[in-house]
Computed example of a mutant assay.
Amino acid sequence: MFTERRIERHQLPCFLKVFNRVTDKPMGSIGSVCEDGLMLISQLPMMVGAVFDLRLKIPAIDGVVQVIDLRACCLWCHEDATPHHYDAGFVIEHVPPEYGQVVSGLRHYFSFYPVSASV
């Protein structure tokens, strides 16, 4: 059975940047997401146990950017396979409904689908 991927998994960090909600400065990119957390890929290590105010800016087709604010605690951080990059795992304290929609949308977008057979 043939499968088709809409976009390669390794391209996710190119699309979804994570910002510090207080300063609006970029912190890194999303490496992965789940219902109650995310993995951040950054150029600086994150302090484990610290609580961060994060902001996701989700691009939409019509050019409007959806902003999702999150408060999350860093559970772990280690050096990435890419030199001078770090992976950090966060648990979200209160998951807004918009974040759940992002997780669902990303699962759909980065999944394999059967190729339609021409008859």
Rank of each mutant, 00 (worst) to 15 (best):
A117G: 03
Y99A: 00
F90D: 02
A88Y: 04
A50N: 11
I92A: 00
H10M: 08
R5A: 09
M47I: 13
P59Y: 01
S118Y: 14
T23V: 04
V95E: 04
F19W: 07
L75I: 13
I58W: 05
S29V: 03
S32P: 01
Q11C: 11
S104R: 05
I7E: 14
I61Q: 13
K57T: 05
L40K: 06
H84L: 12
L54M: 04
A50D: 09
A72Q: 07
Q43T: 11
V115Q: 11
S104P: 01
M27F: 01
R71I: 12
M1C: 11
I41F: 02
L44E: 15
T3I: 12
P114F: 06
R71A: 13
C14Q: 12
Q66A: 07
L38Y: 06
M47H: 11
M39H: 04
L106G: 05
P83F: 03
V102F: 02
H108T: 10
R6A: 12
E8Q: 12
F2S: 11
C14T: 09
P45L: 04
R107D: 00
P114Q: 14
D87P: 00
Q11P: 00
V22I: 13
F19A: 01
S29L: 01
S42K: 06
P97W: 06
M27L: 13
A81N: 07
A50V: 08
Q101L: 10
F15P: 04
D80K: 03
S116L: 10
A60M: 15
I30M: 10
I68V: 15
D80E: 15
L54G: 03
A117R: 14
